[in-house]
Simulated assay, not measured.
Amino acid sequence: MARLKVLIAGGGIGGITAMLALRQRGIEVQLFEQAAAFGQVGAGLQVSSNAARILLKLGLGEALKRVATYPDGRDYRGWDTAERLYYTPLGQKAEAHFGSPYYAAHRAELLDVLLSGLGEHGFRHGARLDRVDQDQGGVSLTFADGSTAQGDILIGADGIHSTVRAQLFGKELPRYTGNVAWRGLVPAERVAHLDLGSVVGVWMGPNRSIVQYYVSAGKTFNWIGISRSSQPAQESWLAEGRTEDALAEYDGWHSTIRTIIAETPKILRQALYDREPLPDWQVGRVVLMGDAAHPMMPFYAQGGAQSIEDAYVLAGCIAEAEGRPLDALARFVRLRQPRTAWMQGLARREEELYQMNDVAAIRARNDRMRANRIPETATFPPEQERLYGYDAELELQKSG
């Protein structure tokens, strides 16, 4: 039997993880990235235990540990008083409970960790995909420069603006979620006097929220503020905002938050869009994964983590299918669609939890949350048990 060859469109977190996982299983793979270099953009992200478990299986644990931070817990506070309303353990408690660490990292540094396992071959930059064709014998890619590539399977890991998705299902207009994200990175010394602690801080307020934590081995403080707005911004990682506008958005918030915003050298303002769910991610020998398949709101910090899960499960399905690519892709979709759909819904529910604006509802929420706010006795809520306890290897074994 001829050796299987897998093609990947997209060199982000999901695409590179898929390449590493396929190589680990002895499968030939070639990756195509449209940019001239792997993109070192973005800000902080959380590498939760479900994703870290996979990166450790890929041999990247030590490299990740060097650049990440290891927060002790997730600390939920009120927007104006800074009262602690809720707490869930991370750090050693989460690692012991879930069997793998929970990290926070800069997106560019996580990408560097993944690239450290990639080597110098098997990928091509400047490859802007123009057309996808397939037949019973395989799949063919045509690029904007006229070059082509052939393989047995194509993985569309090309993000929320996916060319592969548009090829399979037609172009669609993005749906504005009604939220704008403000992002910033602050040198740690500028906020050292605030005593922010080694936590993922979640600040909840009417119609807006902020999540914050250290990245880059503690050298940089990362924050993302999300606010409901009828005026969408650009849908771009690089769209800049103004400090005075961000301060106006968070007018009346606790001085800690306003100081962090004021100390931020450059603020980004990005509209949050999503796409309508797809009934299937597979068409023949082509399959979508990550944001190309299931873009989600950032309220549970799972965009990157779910792409990592996708990548590992997809590689396992392909390796175990013994030359039956259509069966492999169908199994992948069956395994992953229910979990990612649940995660998309959970992220939407968190938006309402964080940003509710009804006074009675806020009072009821705060009273309910205060029952789990003592760090020494705090426990993991059921959704975190389900989310962080996920073991991709075990899921493959159970479905085999």
Rank of each mutant, 00 (worst) to 15 (best):
I318V: 12
P325H: 05
M289C: 05
F221R: 04
D291F: 11
S255A: 15
E249C: 15
E276Q: 15
G252R: 14
R324V: 03
A330G: 10
Y250L: 14
W237C: 11
L268C: 12
E276W: 10
S230K: 11
D310A: 11
R269D: 01
H294S: 03
W253M: 01
Q306E: 09
R228E: 14
V283Q: 11
P265D: 10
P279L: 06
S209F: 01
I226G: 07
K219I: 08
M296N: 00
A305K: 04
D251N: 14
Q234S: 14
C317R: 06
I226K: 06
A246G: 11
S209M: 15
L335Q: 09
T264K: 05
Y300P: 09
I261D: 05
S229Q: 12
L335S: 03
L278K: 01
E320S: 12
E322Q: 15
E244I: 08
L314A: 10
G290Q: 09
Q212I: 02
A321F: 04
I261F: 08
Q302D: 07
D245V: 13
E320F: 10
V211H: 11
D291L: 03
D327K: 14
Q234E: 13
T264S: 14
Q306N: 13
M289Q: 10
I318R: 03
I226W: 00
Y213T: 04
G218W: 05
S216V: 01
G241F: 05
G225R: 09
P265W: 10
A321G: 01
G290D: 06
L335C: 01
P298W: 08
L272N: 01
E322C: 11
A292Q: 04
E309G: 05
I257W: 04
R334T: 14
G303I: 13
H294T: 05
Q302K: 09
R331S: 06
V283M: 07
I267C: 00
A305E: 00
Q231I: 15
P232G: 00
S229D: 12
T264L: 04
P325L: 03
A217E: 09
G241C: 06
A293K: 11
V287H: 07
R336S: 08
L314Y: 02
P295G: 03
H254W: 08
A301E: 06
V211R: 09
A311V: 06
D245F: 01
Y300W: 08
I257L: 15
R324M: 07
E320G: 01
E249M: 09
L247T: 02
P232Q: 01
F299T: 02
G304F: 03
E276L: 12
A330D: 06
F299R: 07
R228W: 02
F221M: 13
E320H: 15
Y300K: 13
R269A: 00
R208Y: 07
D291W: 05
G241W: 01
A271Y: 07
L278C: 04
W253T: 10
H294Y: 08
G218E: 01
I210D: 06
F332T: 03
R258A: 08
C317M: 06
E249K: 15
